[in-house]
């Protein structure tokens, strides 16, 4: 399923946070969204997923303007994974994943075979089936994020948006989460901080600077010394890695 954004503009009061962003995500593609703090990554993700409404411009998913789609219907097509969402409630892994079926169920409808299958598949996909009865509070950071992804998968979406899903995770779990997302059979847009991880796992990368698209393209086209210097204000060496067009970035200390 394709995602197309046309001239998105959004801000609070007089401050523009997203200015005139247009982009296209092809079906099945994994798009990385990078940029310094405050460049509008999170805001753009929320506009793309319909959680916020743009002041102007529009988002189309498979050619349909999402502003015309009711929220519940939209949530059957797209899922959103926040960065480290937490709760004090004493829920189990299974309870959390079951929440993903919310947009598919009416107020008092029973638990259907389809719901059960979706939850079972989602748990299987993130390798948490054997731990479905475990209390949420006892999970590690990486496990919690896997459960959040399972919950998003239980929505059986065609597009998934992830806002820095690897925050606060160690490198092993960062790679594990991103590999999982890349291998999913759906369109995904991921906001990321780590440039090397973005280079490793994204098909294409959008660089945001002050709410606008600074560059867009394959990792080797986008992650250049000039852009790293101008946008991220770092001196870095970019070298080709063994993996064809996946650049590797080495930062210089100064």
């Amino acid at each position: 399923m394709s995602v197309v954004a046309k001239n998105l503009r959004w801000g609070v009061k007089r401050k523009t946070i997203v200015s005139d962003v247009s982009l296209t995500v092809a079906p099945g593609e994994t798009l990385g969204l990078i940029g310094p703090n405050g460049s509008g990554k999170s805001s753009l993700l929320r506009l793309l997923s319909g959680l916020r409404h743009p002041l102007s411009g529009r988002v189309e998913i498979n050619g349909q303007d999402i502003a015309q789609v009711p929220r519940k219907a939209l949530s059957r097509q797209i899922a959103f994974v926040q960065q480290s969402a937490a709760t004090d409630t004493n829920v189990t892994v299974r309870d959390v994943v079951r929440l993903g079926r919310t947009p598919h169920r009416s107020a008092l409808a029973g638990w259907s075979e389809t719901d059960e299958t979706a939850v079972a598949h989602a748990l299987e996909r993130v390798d948490m089936t054997s731990r479905r009865a475990q209390p949420w509070q006892t999970l590690s950071g990486g496990e919690r994020q896997r459960v959040h992804i399972a919950r998003a998968l239980a929505q059986t979406p065609q597009v998934m948006f992830l806002d820095e899903p690897t925050n606060h995770l160690d490198i092993h779990h960062q790679i594990e989460i991103l590999r999982m997302v890349r291998d999913l059979d759906l369109t995904s847009v991921i906001a990321l901080h780590d440039l090397n991880l973005a280079a490793m796992f994204c098909d294409r990368i959008v660089v945001l600077e002050a709410g606008a698209v600074r560059a867009c393209g394959t990792p080797d086209a986008v992650l250049t010394q000039a852009i790293l210097r101008d946008v991220f204000r770092v001196t870095a060496h970019v070298s080709g890695s063994s993996d064809a067009d996946r650049p590797h970035i080495r930062f210089s200390p100064q």
Binding site: R46, L51, A79, Q82, T87, V91, G100, T102, P103, A107
Partner: peptide, 24 residues
């Protein structure tokens, strides 16, 4: 409240999460 019970469950991880799950 019972009619909206399922929507209340969706608030487990906050308002935005509930919205992402299709809750008004």
């Amino acid at each position: 409240c019972i009619w909206m019970g399922r929507a209340l469950d969706a608030f487990t991880f906050g308002d935005e999460d509930a919205a992402a799950l299709g809750v008004p």
